[in-house]
Every structure is written in structure tokens, then in C-alpha cells.
């Protein structure tokens, strides 16, 4: 009785806040859930002028083709590999960088570096694609001049399949690690300074402090970041690949998103394009569920 009254009272004071939620909920419904209806295309021989209702149903034909075409299989593997390596790199680099930045004593310098590495995050891949093409050129590009100084022959970064993958991962990390670093720095800011003082009294040097206090403090958040990014295992980055790839590296660089774009939008095979997209979403969904469970189990982290 009492609690119910309390809840009613709560509702009375919080309803304006709840109303404020409505537009957001409506937008999500209209733009995220309603279009999902279009997924029926994956099971149809979809013809735009016939629409969803009159196109022929073909069952799982599109999905069967996806695993039959050698190019589709290669593309799924490429996506998986590139995305996996990206996730690993995106975990290690910001982690280490945050650790190092944390040791910088001058506040101004720290802030400056932080802003500086954060900046590339705001550049679009369309622009970066053009810049990278020049920077990585074998013909007087900045990076290859450096390689030349070190006494190596120029590397065809964007024209050689294996180097292409490395370039894609490295440039992606370069662009976004500043952003991820912030999360780790936030975790570090939450460490109680008394722990360091206590460690100092116990005679621990900087290195010992890092090993015993700083890193353990960062582990939970690292686990959360890692498990949550599992859901992105099939997102290898459309913008980036689309702006960098070329015929010489199709075999190793083509990914699901660029493939769907070409087959579905350029080629006009909407049904097949959607089927590949559905497949991607299903895999991602499974991984998100797993990662959510893992995040809760390993780090006690819950979103809902």
C-alpha cells in the first residue's frame, strides 16, 4: 500500500521527464524498427515496381547463394579478419597510450597531447582517403621517404593485399585511438589517490605502482570495451575500405559492406544485398548477446 502510494507520487513528479522521452522513442520506432519490415526483401526476388507485396517469395534462395559464391565467402572471411584485428588493436593501443599519458606530470602537456590525438577522429574517410593516397605513395610519399631513409625499398601500401590490411588497421587505429583513450583515462581518474600514497609508503616504485594499482584498475573497463566491441566483429568499416580499396587488393580487402553496396545498390539485386545484410546482423546480434553476458560475468557491467 505504502509503496504503491510512493510510486504514484513518484509518477506525479516524474511524468514531464517521461514525456520528454516520447519524441526519442517515436524516432527510434519510425526510423529503426519500422524499416525492419524491409527485411522481407531477403526472402524475395524483390522487384522495386512490384513492391513488398507482389514480389515473388523465394525462401532461403538468397542465403544459399551467399554461401555458394566464392566471392561472398572470401568477403565474409576478409570482414571477419580485418574487424577482429581492428578490435584487438583498438584495445591495446589506447590502453597503453592511456597508461603513458597518465604518467605525464605536466597538466598542460597532457591536455595538449590528448586533444591532438583526438583530432583525426573528426576527419571523414573521404578526405583521409585522398590524403593517405598521397602520403603512402611509392613515388615520393611521406611514409615511403621514411622507409627509404631506413634503407628499405618502397612499400606499395595500398596496392599489395597484405600491406593493404595492415594499412587499413593502422590508419583506423591512428584515426580513432584518441577517442578510446578517453574512456581509459576516465577509469584512471577514478582511482583513489590514497592507494598510490599507501603504495609509496610500502616502498613501491612507479613501475610497481603501475603493475599493482593502475593496470588492475583499468582491467574491468578494458573487459567491458572488449566484450562490447565483439558485436562489431562484422563491421570492418565501410567508409574507410570504400575510399581506399582498388582492383589490386579486392581479394584481401573487400568486405561485406562494400560488397552489399555494390551488389545491392549498384547492381540492383536488392534481395541478395538484404540477405547478406541480414546475415551480418544475425551474427552481430548473437555476439552482442554473448558479449553482454560476458561483460556482466567478468566485470559486473550491465547496460540494462
Amino acid at each position: 500500500m505504502r509503496t504503491r502510494q510512493r510510486q504514484g507520487w513518484k509518477w506525479k513528479t516524474t511524468w514531464p521527464l517521461h514525456t520528454m522521452l516520447l519524441p526519442g522513442v517515436a524516432i527510434v520506432l519510425i526510423f529503426c524498427y519500422l524499416p525492419m519490415f524491409g527485411l522481407v526483401m531477403a526472402f524475395q526476388d524483390f522487384q522495386p515496381h512490384l513492391g513488398f507485396f507482389r514480389s515473388d517469395w523465394i525462401g532461403l534462395e538468397n542465403f544459399r547463394l551467399m554461401f555458394e559464391y566464392p566471392d561472398a565467402r572470401q568477403v565474409i572471411w576478409n570482414t571477419f579478419l580485418i574487424a577482429f584485428l581492428k578490435i584487438i588493436a583498438h584495445l591495446i593501443v589506447p590502453f597503453v597510450f592511456a597508461l603513458l599519458l597518465n604518467e605525464v606530470r605536466r597538466m598542460l602537456l597532457k591536455r595538449l597531447i590528448q586533444t591532438f590525438v583526438y583530432l583525426p577522429h573528426f576527419l571523414s574517410w573521404v578526405i583521409l582517403g585522398g590524403i593517405l593516397l598521397d602520403m603512402l605513395s611509392t613515388d615520393g610519399g611521406l611514409v615511403n621517404q621514411l622507409v627509404g631513409w631506413l634503407g628499405f625499398p618502397p612499400i606499395f601500401f595500398l596496392g599489395d593485399g597484405d600491406w593493404f590490411r595492415i594499412t587499413v588497421i593502422a590508419s583506423d587505429v591512428w584515426k580513432d585511438f584518441g577517442f578510446s583513450t578517453i574512456i581509459f583515462l576516465a577509469a584512471l581518474a577514478g582511482v583513489n589517490p590514497e592507494m598510490y600514497e599507501a603504495a609509496l609508503i610500502d616502498g613501491a616504485n612507479r613501475w610497481r605502482q603501475t603493475l599493482s594499482i593502475t593496470i588492475p584498475a583499468m582491467i574491468p573497463i578494458a573487459v567491458v570495451v572488449a566484450t562490447l566491441s565483439l558485436g562489431n566483429i562484422l563491421n570492418a568499416g565501410f567508409d574507410q575500405i570504400f575510399n581506399l580499396y582498388n582492383p589490386l587488393v579486392y581479394e584481401k580487402g573487400d568486405i561485406i559492406d562494400t560488397y552489399v553496396y555494390r551488389v545491392g545498390l549498384i547492381g540492383g539485386d536488392f534481395g541478395f544485398g538484404t540477405a547478406v545484410g541480414v546475415f551480418k546482423s544475425l551474427v552481430s546480434l548473437t555476439l552482442i548477446i554473448i558479449s553482454y553476458r560476458l561483460a556482466y560475468k567478468l566485470a559486473g557491467y550491465r547496460i540494462f
Binding site: 593516397l133 605513395s137 611509392t138 613515388d139 595500398l158 596496392g159 582498388n246 589490386l248
Partner: peptide
């Protein structure tokens, strides 16, 4: 022809 014709 340019070495990077394939990228251009």
C-alpha cells in the same frame, strides 16, 4: 605509365 595507375 605511373606505378600507381591501379590505385588512381
Amino acid at each position: 605509365i605511373h606505378k600507381e595507375a591501379g590505385l588512381q
